[in-house]
Design a binder for these strands. Sequence first.
RNA 1: GGGCUUGUAGCUCAGUUGGUUAGAGCGCUACGUUGACAUCGUAGAGGUCCGCAGUUCGAGUCUGCGCAAGCCCACCA
Length: 725
Amino acid sequence: MDKSYKPEENEKRIYDKWEKGKYFTPKLESGKKPFTVVIPPPNVTGSLHMGHALNNTIQDVMVRWNRMNGIPSEWLPGTDHAGIATQSVVEKKLAKEGKTRFDLGRANFEKEVWKWKDEYEARILGQLKTLGCSCDWTRTRFTMDEGYTKAILKAFTHYYDKGYIYRDYRITNWCPRCGTSLSDLEVEHEEHESFLWYIKYEIEGGGELTVATTRPETMLGDTAVAVNPKDKRYKDLVGKNVILPIQGRKIPIIADSIVDMEFGTGAVKVTPAHDPNDFEIAKRHNLDKIIVIDLEGKMTPEAGEEFTGLDRFEARDVVIEMLKEGKWLSQAKPYVHSVGHCYRCNTVMEPSLTLQWYVSMKELAKPAILAVEKGKVDFHPKKWKKVYLDWMKNINDWCISRQIWWGHQIPVWYCECGEIIVSEKWALEDVEDKKSERKCPKCKSSKLKRDEDVLDTWFSSALWPFATFGWPQTSKDLSYFYPTTFLATARDILYLWVARMIMSGIEFMGEVPFKDVYINPTVFNHEGRRMSKSLGTGVDPLELIEKYGTDATRFGLLWQIGQGQDIKFSEDAILNGKRFANKVWNATRFTLMNLEGYKDVSRETYEKEIKPNLTKNDKEILKKLNLTIANTNKHLEKYDFQHAVEEIYDFFWHDFCDTCIEDTKVRIRENDETKLAAQYTLDTVLKNSLKLLHPIMPFVTEAIWKNLNEKEPLIISDWPQKIEF
RNA sequence: GGGCUUGUAGCUCAGUUGGUUAGAGCGCUACGUUGACAUCGUAGAGGUCCGCAGUUCGAGUCUGCGCAAGCCCACCA
């Protein structure tokens, strides 16, 4: 053996051997319950970050541990198409060439994205391999491959037929930069320091009414002023009109109980086309909806000639100036409030009146709430159960249409007669590029137009645990592997992904999609800030791997996490991992040097020559080994990775190296009569330790295993059992 | 507005159901090794366990209040 372990020379070679040996693909053994994990599909254009590294290390530890225990273990890898993110990356690339997606047209643009996808998918999956992930690559899936697309279409038509999917014209989260709607979960709120502007509206027939607003520019689209019906201050004003400043329009004063008497002046301007609350008020009072800001965030002609084409924030300044000049502005109070931003490009969201597809969630949520309450799905740490339930019990309908091109196009056609046709068949034909003759079932017209929008990426991810195994087709895989066993993911997709998988799993499979959900800690940098590439606060796990090796990186990450406690990343832990890998390597060198003349002993030799000569120290370490095996199992069963790592580390370093090796060293060198027993102890403790360590540090242990001339690779060796002595 | 979490050695964190002198890794100090170990070993210094009040024979561990930091949810005009 070399004097030290060189990860860079070993890791790739070892990984290839595992893959070639097909150790990652389990056999479907009837009667044996499999251990199944589906990977949280990484964004196809993304790159492995520290959170992924931790998350995938955790999954790999569980998979390897189960595999060594003789359980058919399936870890299904794959990627999702990440609609908005991917599209915007490719659009950015086109922009550098001076082109837009419209120059290419939809079909060509999609081709362009597919090319991009192929390249980046290979890259990110390769990164998982670098991390040592023992995924079953024979079952790799992508949310837009053909079979998966069938699942999407099935799910859509199923929901539609059940009346759960509907189309509605209402205020949605709109990103003027991305040019698409977003679901509530894709909007990130940030505190903004701004002002609460108090504007005086002149009352017809005398007097004035002051309203307070954070968005003065929207006053151009006001169609009423609302007060609370219980508000005595304004009781006599209800039914009268005010004159809208700047525009001079006459708008009514109405009473609506949604108005908070305590806030501002207790009178609120109503802009139905640009605020969800106001939209609701307008519905109740049958008010006009005047759109003054268009979908690009620019003022429309409706706002007035002098505003047309102005950016919404420029318009705000102009409106404020004009209000000041007209003496309509009574005060501007500094005010902190939260403003929605696009999760993708951070642009301030513009709530906009658009026609979108929604999934009604209330009925879907009910059994998903019950399942978790009854413990069919367990969360680790437990606190996430409450977080899940709180959200599910207050769930809102889900906007699933997106105004982009990259994704699953909605399987809906509109006829000129107004008929809406939802067709799985036609959509499939479009995918396969063989079109049958299509006619409107109502008016027989063939002038049909397909809905241009695509579905939210999470609509497809929601089907991941069963669509990846072939649903809606029945298959051996599906019935064997579903429901899955373990899901490890980050907390920021608890609602976006986990909750929706539970709902759709129950809806389509009649069973929850997984038993245990492990929410891994978030990795922060040393200052406690979120690791982020764009903020420049990230550490690239791939650089760590290059510097310290994969094993050290995995070890260091697990070493740092507590029971669900977030971690402030420290590179020292990774360094410690490297030291440990080196220690293990050298302990093996020592053992090999001292095992001359020692081969696998027969039962007879053991009973005659070893067992009687086991010293007190030998028995002590073997006892300790048994305890370590038991404790490691206990910790892994509880998903307590930190303590599992610590357990093995302490045993190996302090009990085995510092004590046992120092003890046997002397006996072997001096050819003591207990030499054989000492060698037996060394050999036994080392091999079992390597097995215990393998799920955490797969490469160095496998490399060592090879040096021990074992027939079977370590990855499929048996997990240690209690040693009898 | 609602909810969650954290505050233990210079740094990063453990401390199980409350029980003798509060632990680990890194860092620091001293000594020793350099024939398993880009070292390693042995010993050691270092803590008002955020504060206050309470429950208890006994609290880092339970309760209340406060201070500080962070996160999540929400139609805070």
